[in-house]
Design a protein around this nucleic acid. Structure first.
Lengths: 157, 157
DNA sequence: TCAGCCTAGTTGACACGTCAATCAGTATGG
DNA sequence: CCATACTGATTGACGTGTCAACTAGGCTGA
């Protein structure tokens, strides 16, 4: 039984919030793409691979590490492989398993993307907020996440 | 000249924030889809049409009203037209112009989606936050928007 | 008048995401 | 041994978004 509906003020906060975050995501993505040739998705994949032993991971492990569904990852890896950022190799031991390997081009791209990536986050997010607001963001994030179905509380939580 | 890079704490707040909002958007979209058969995009389009005189708008005006690029809207209208939610008609006066008309099915779908839509927003957003936090969201949204390129400060601002 | 420009709108190519189906290899119980 | 179930991974269909190109109708000034 629904308790009540949002007031128009609450609704406006919701819409502004969602639209602004979407715009922010879009701008960050566009700047990363322009400055480094990598999408945010590319970046997280390359980051996880860089940190992995031998810079290689099985797709399932990679998916867990970055909190993606396997199918999403598979599609993305296909695109990254076409661009030479990663390679797929067989996995000795379990012949249904595969292995994703960081390619030379991927490593290079990742390293030259790190600073631009962090700079964009600073300029558009960290510098936009006061330290108190940044703390409030952390609180709000946690509160919102708690309200989400548990299935989604994935990742480094 | 970059001033400094984000600390790892700041970076973690950023990542959690973006991931959580994305998850939230996904959950809202999935629930709307399941309960009403409409995507968030469908909903905003139908909302704008419902409020327009004669429930009809020229695509450009519609695009401005909801803050979308024309091409995005055009693609979306194509899909909505296939489903019978809207119709496209000619526009008398300027023969380049067209007109988007709310179809019967669109009107029905929109009206039966309103309450579920508001309920989802309440449950996953409004109810997750204290009134103070809701106020903080509004502040933070404004601060983030101010940092975005002006081109994007679109809509009812 | 008509060349050049602006505006309205659509289209095509492609990246990204989700879902359901599929395929192949491993494990397991009778 | 083998049917069955489970797991790792990919695939196809389709919705969604962006960008650049394109069509086509108005507008304006030499």
């Amino acid at each position: 039984m629904p308790r009540r509906l949002p007031t128009s003020a609450e609704l406006r906060i919701w819409r502004d919030f969602i639209e602004t975050v979407e715009a922010l995501r879009g701008v960050v993505a566009a700047r990363l793409q322009a400055e480094t040739g990598l999408s945010p998705g590319d970046y997280v994949v390359l980051l996880a691979l860089s940190e992995a032993p031998q810079t290689r991971l099985r797709p399932s492990d990679l998916a867990v590490a970055i909190g993606w569904e396997r199918s999403r990852l598979s599609h993305h890896l296909g695109r990254m492989e076409r661009r030479g950022l990663i390679r797929r190799e067989g996995f000795s031991g379990d012949s249904r398993g595969a292995s994703v390997v960081l390619a030379e081009a991927g490593s290079t791209a990742f390293h030259s993307a790190t600073v631009p990536h962090l700079t964009v986050v600073r300029e558009l997010f960290v510098d936009a907020l006061t330290p108190e607001q940044l703390g409030a963001v952390a609180e709000i994030t946690a509160a919102l996440r708690d309200q989400l179905p548990e299935t989604l509380n994935r990742g480094a939580l």
